[in-house]
Structures are given as structure tokens and as C-alpha cells.
Nucleic acid binder design. Sequence first.
RNA 1: GUGGAUGUAGCUCAGCUGGUAGAGCGCCGCGUUGUGGUCGCGGAUGUCGCGGGUUCGAGUCCCGUCAUUCACCCCA
Length: 468
Amino acid sequence: MASRRITPLSGFPELLPGQRIVEAQVVRTLSETFELHGFAPLETRAVEPLDQLLRKGETSKEVYVLRRLQASEEDDGGDSSGGLGLHFDLTVPFARYVLENAGKLEFPFRRYQVQKVWRGERPQEGRFREFTQADIDVVGRDVLPFHHDVEVARVMVDALRRLEFLPPIRLQVNNRKLIQGFYSALGAPDVDAVMRAVDKLDKVPPDAVQQLLVDEAGLDEKQADLCLRLAAISTDDGSFADEVRALGLEHPLLEEGLEELAAVVEGCASLVDQRVRIVADLKIARGLDYYTGTVFETRLDGFEWLGSICSGGRYDALASDGKTSYPGVGISLGLSRLLVPLFQRGVLASDRSVPSAVLVALPDEESRPTCDRVAHQLRERGIATEVAAAPQKYGKQIRYAERRGIPFVWFPATGGGDHEVKDIRSGDQQPADPASWSPPAGDLRPRTVVSTVSTGSTTESPDEGAPS
RNA sequence: GUGGAUGUAGCUCAGCUGGUAGAGCGCCGCGUUGUGGUCGCGGAUGUCGCGGGUUCGAGUCCCGUCAUUCACCCCA
């Protein structure tokens, strides 16, 4: 059989073992944090009917279609759903899940979900066709009190701050009501077009956006100028409201948005520290999605080019069965976008490529039962242990451990002597009892290692970050 | 999906106007016959991303393709 040359697949990243160890630890930290806040774990199927995926306003998404190899032409277009597609986010499947299980769920319903999603877009650094998202959402029946907007922001910030290896982050918050009210008060003929233009401020210089506002959103110079002045407002406290009011426009929606935005910023103020900033940033618009109030984006210091790693917002009408509507608010974290670039650039790594904390050396094949017993005793106490594969010279066995980052090598007692355990980083070797010996707590699990590329310096941080 | 740049050893990269493929690091072995890392000596790195074309001859020039990356689109 001719072997086809194997090549990577564009946009479908795969991790090395040490990187996967870091990712798995991150997922563990996120899940624990979400559950600390009472969010229930949830998983939905990978596929949805295409008509669900392509509901209003979502037709531009690049959806991967699922098809049976044996399906005939007639089968494809036959059923009413129009076939199946892989989900491109976790919010749309969740909305469907809520409708489907509304009778069995308690509202407001809080859930988190960490799953792969697929988008047929052109890959770039931090943009993939298959990637992992971590979502939290709160959904109510008919109504959802505003304080949940503050809650989801607090939960996600709490989760992010526990990932101590991350560069400092900046959560940017805005409010759709605020900007829509402002644009309406201004007399903008097409509020969506204004948002779309303003949303480009990240990449396009202000005077170009001004031109867009005039050409495509139908504003005059003075209106466009006011839009830019609004978008330029960015404060880390409630003072943005004064700056907005100083622009002299009034509208009920604008007022409502100002109050909500202030509530989010002030509600999160207690979480702010050196590694987490929260700003009211009035240029955040979030495209044309289903958002109706609060909107979030999140950026990493020094990695602004990556775009937002974590965003979301309030949607008043995401799910509805005609009689009942289910308003929600949520945020989703792009786990792959966050981690893969840090791996690629060598910023993040694991200090081990295996979970093992101990390698039990094997003097000879006859001693394997003895070695297995030692390993068993250690594992019984939660210490990840492996026994050497072959009775090579001890130097080789030590090197085996070193290559994998296993910190301890155990030398079993032979001929009546003591067992000994060696820390191969320090070279320190001590007699030890397999029934009671434990490594230092910090060596029990692999650690995430952060290296600052510019200086080349290396610092270690425990993965299970405690709130400080 | 559209357009541009890039692709040489496991990694970082040399390789001139076409003429038999290189370095450092890493890896393997020995010195060191059950205790690695330092040092010394020795060794192997490879369908030059892949396929086709031009040519006596292609890593080098041309076309296609795949991958990476940048911009657009969109967004985690």
C-alpha cells in the first residue's frame, strides 16, 4: 500500500504532550472556577441542523457541513432541516438546548461549556478552523435581571486571574443601548452602519473611519465627529458618563445604557489588580450580532494583535419558542487563541512532557515485581509514578527521566539495603520508604513554565492559582 | 473565499549570476562495565515542503499544489 506523505492540516492545530498538559490544567482551573460560581457543566452535540446554525443574521458564518459518505443525492436535500453542520460557537447550540429542555431546566439557568467548535475561515496565527472555546452563560425565562451582566463578567475575570501565567489582561466593556441611543439622538439614518464603521477603529485610523461614517453611514461631518468623540472615551471607572453627557445628546436608550455600563464597571471594580484591568471602552461594538446591551471584549497586554481572546454580551432574544423568550448574557473564552500562540512563541511550556513525578529505576528484569510494588505504593498516595522500561545502566535511566522532566528517580533496595530517591535537578539522594515518602507538593504535578522572551528569564508559577 | 510573503537536518539558520548539501545547538556512541548533567573524542543527520516544467545539469529559474504567515472578510 502506497503511503501518502503526511502533512499538517491548515487551521487544525495539534499540541505536543507537554502543551496538552498545560491546556488540560487550564481547562481544569476554568471548570473549577465556573463551578465555584455555581455554573453547571454542560456538553452539547457537535452538530446542529443547518437551519438552526444559519438563523437570522448568521448566514455569513462559514459552517462545515456534515454528510454521510454513502448518502445519495436525494438524501441530501430531502429532510426539512437542510442537513447537519458542525457548530461554529457554543451559544447557538446552547440556545437550541434551552428551548429543547426548557421544561426540565430551572431558570435562571447557569451553565459552562468547554468544547471544540469549527469555522471554515482562512487560518492565521490565533485563528483556526478547529478550536476550543470555554463559554459561560446565564439564561432566564421571559426576563433576566441585569445583575447577571455583572456576574458573568466577574466570573470570567475570576477565572482568568487564576491563570497566573497570563500576561495582564484588559476587559473592555461597552453597551449597545448606550451607543444605539447616542446614534439615534444624533439622527443617524442607519445605526448598524455606524456601529460597523466604528468597530473598525482598531485597525483603521480615525480620519478613515470618519470618511466611512460619511460615505457609508450617511452622517454629516459634525455627526461623524461626535461619533468619533464618543468612541474615543475610555475610562476605568464611572467617569465616562460625564464625558458622554458633555457631548450634549439625550435619549432614553442612551441614559439606560450609561447606567448599565456604569453598573458593570463598578460591579467589577473589586476584582481589579495589577494583572486585571476593567475599562468602559465606548468604541467596542461587536459587529452585527445578536447583542442588545452589555458587550465585552478582552485583550492581552503585549498581544493586542491577537484581537479579543474573550468576548460576549447580553442578548435579549437569542432563544424563543414564539410564546416564551429566553434572554441571556454570556462570555466565551477562546482557549486555542489564547494558548496556541503562547506555545508557538515559547512563552508557555510545561516543565514535564509526562505526568510522572517519579521514575522507579529497574536494576534488572528479575526486580520488576519489586519495582512495580514500589510504584504501586507511591500511586496509592497519589504520586504519578512509572517504572523504567528496560534495565539499562542507571545513567541511561536517569537520562530517560531528565529528558521527560521527571524530577525524581527511585532506586529500589537490592540485597537488603535501603530504598533511595534522588532529586535529579539537585543531585540530592536520600534513603526513603515507599510507604511514606512524598515529593514536595510543588513537584506532584507538572508545572506551567513562563519564559519572558525578551529577557530570556524564566519563572515558574503553580497552575492551581489561589486567589490572592 | 480574495490578494501578498515565506518553506533547506529535531531546532535556529547559511548556501553568490544554476555545477555533487553546510554551521551551531540538539541527538547517538565511546572515554566513564549501574548514578545523568561538565569536558574530550567519534558518528548519523536531509525525498532542499510536494508535483510538474525549462536545462547537459535545479536547493537556486518557471508553473501548480500543500503548509506557515500577513492583509481583506469575519471573529475566539
